[in-house]
Structure formats: C-alpha cells, structure tokens
C-alpha cells in the first residue's frame, strides 16, 4: 500500500554489515575476557579496596 524509500540499494546492506561487525567485536572481547589470567582479574577486582584515612578539610595543605 505504501510506496517506500527512494534510496540507493546498497545501504540496505548496512544493518547486516553492522550486525556482523558487532558480533565480531563481541566475540573478540569475550575471548579476551575469558583468557584473562586469574591473578590479573583478582588484582583488578580488588582495586576499589585500598585502605585510606582522612584528615579535616580545614587542615589540608
């Protein structure tokens, strides 16, 4: 019923190419993440847990 787009045909490939590209990125990252060493993972995961102290703000340098 509705006549749709007048646009170059090649662009209809874009969603497919984008999907393949995104899939490749995802698989690559998945592979890299799985292959990360456990010691490295543990070290990264513990980064927020460094002990700190505090001093009054009006005594700061």
């Amino acid at each position: 019923m509705f006549r749709r787009l007048l646009f170059e045909n090649w662009v209809s490939l874009f969603p497919l190419i984008a999907l393949i590209t995104a899939g490749s990125v995802y698989l690559t990252i998945f592979y890299r993440a799985v292959r990360m060493k456990s010691a490295q993972i543990d070290r990264f995961a513990r980064l927020p847990f460094e002990s700190e102290t505090s001093i009054p703000a009006d005594e700061s340098k």
Binding site: I41, A45, P48
Partner: peptide, 26 residues
C-alpha cells in the same frame, strides 16, 4: 565502584564487567 564498596566484596565477575563494557559501548 560503590556497590562493591558498600557490599564489602569485589565485583561478582570482573570478566563479565569487561564484556559488559565493550559490548555496551560498541
């Protein structure tokens, strides 16, 4: 940062966070 601090334990899976970041951003 804050959820592990509040729960006093590291993130459940650092590997998953890596996948989460790249796939989300891309």
């Amino acid at each position: 940062y804050f959820v592990p601090k509040a729960a006093e334990r590291p993130v459940y899976s650092y590997r998953l966070s890596v996948i989460h970041f790249w796939s989300l951003v891309f």
